[in-house]
Design a binder for these strands. Structure first.
Lengths: 199, 199
DNA sequence: CCTACCGATCGGTAGG
DNA sequence: CCTACCGATCGGTAGG
């Protein structure tokens, strides 16, 4: 009866903390970012953060967990689709690019900071990653067998694809060509992967 | 007159420490690796390390400095060569792959741990990196202008090339296909970059 | 190369 | 949300 006020908050304090922490992790790394660093950005004392989050580890778990879910859902949706193996592979790559671009700060954690996950989350994370890569590799193998892409070691091909997308993390951070739109960037990466840089 | 014993040492204690530290940095990252961790691998107490190295920071400086020099020398040698722009670009990519493969532990520092360099080494490192990328980008631009590779944003192309080589760090660490020789791996990456994965 | 030790900083808690 | 505070760990030094 008393709660007639509509939900008007756009970002809870907790979400704000998680977001700002992710940004700091990109710049300094998880280990080198102290709770005091995070608190300073939020504008409170370090001890106050613990009213919104359990501990530093939880921040990492939540950020990486949400991301792993996005990738996992994305690949599962594509695998079950009825389409040519070439189209499915391309769609998977585009999905991977889009999720990376939409979660740039989080995605950076995939490079090195995942190592600081503690058990049991570390094992869970590695299992999800393995599953993702296996499903992705399946799409690569199907594309090879159908003649859509040339023959080769599927693991090397997958590794090349995922590394190519990883160019996103450098690009947006250290370069000044960030004027480019997400759509243009996606097309550029797709072209590099499938056609290479030759004329 | 007394020093008749030949130089028989293959690896000085200092070099041993630097090498083992580099390996630990790959696994745990610079910040999460303590002097105690390094000492344990060497088989001494942490305090004893300071007889061979000045401090933890020096380890990072020496490792990254040596690597930066290797890359720098490599690109300068290629730039002054008399050859087609296509050949020079390919040679630069091969050099980058070879230096990366020969210094796998060190090269890993380029991903994230360089951030923990302190001034003035940080600025020096970033300047060397910038110079390297500018020279490399020059080769890309020449290759575009001569029609050897297709038109496109040189920064995006360079970024794609360097990211493609970065697949080395994943490959050798987490995969089980390491049976592949360095030569095969180099050819594979070159082919991916120039021709892409299409048939 | 070791023992002993230091100041600084860390993540986190208690209590209000 | 803050003040006050804690135990643990860090990089590093002294002295032998």
């Amino acid at each position: 009866m008393t709660n007639t006020k509509p939900e008007e908050q756009t970002l809870s304090k907790r979400e704000f903390i998680l977001e700002e922490a992710a940004k700091l992790f990109v710049v300094k790394g998880f280990k080198a970012t102290s709770m005091k660093d995070i608190a300073a950005v939020i504008g409170v004392e370090a001890a106050s953060l613990y009213n919104h989050i359990k501990n530093k580890q939880e921040i990492l778990v939540v950020l990486l967990g949400g991301l792993a879910d996005s990738f996992s859902i994305g690949i599962h949706e594509i695998v079950i689709k009825k389409a040519s193996s070439r189209d499915k592979l391309e769609e998977a790559i585009r999905m991977h690019i889009q999720v990376s671009l939409e979660n740039r700060n989080k995605t950076h954690l995939i490079l090195e900071d995942w190592k600081h996950l503690e058990e049991p989350e570390l094992t869970r994370y590695l299992m999800l990653r393995k599953e993702y890569q296996d499903l992705f590799k399946g799409l690569v193998i199907d594309a090879i067998n159908s003649g859509a892409i040339k023959k080769g070691n599927p693991e090397l091909i997958l590794n090349h694809i995922l590394s190519s997308v990883r160019s996103i993390y450098n690009q947006y951070l250290y370069s000044n060509t960030s004027k480019i739109s997400a759509q243009e960037y996606e097309e550029s990466i797709i072209d590099f992967i499938f056609q290479g840089i030759s004329g």
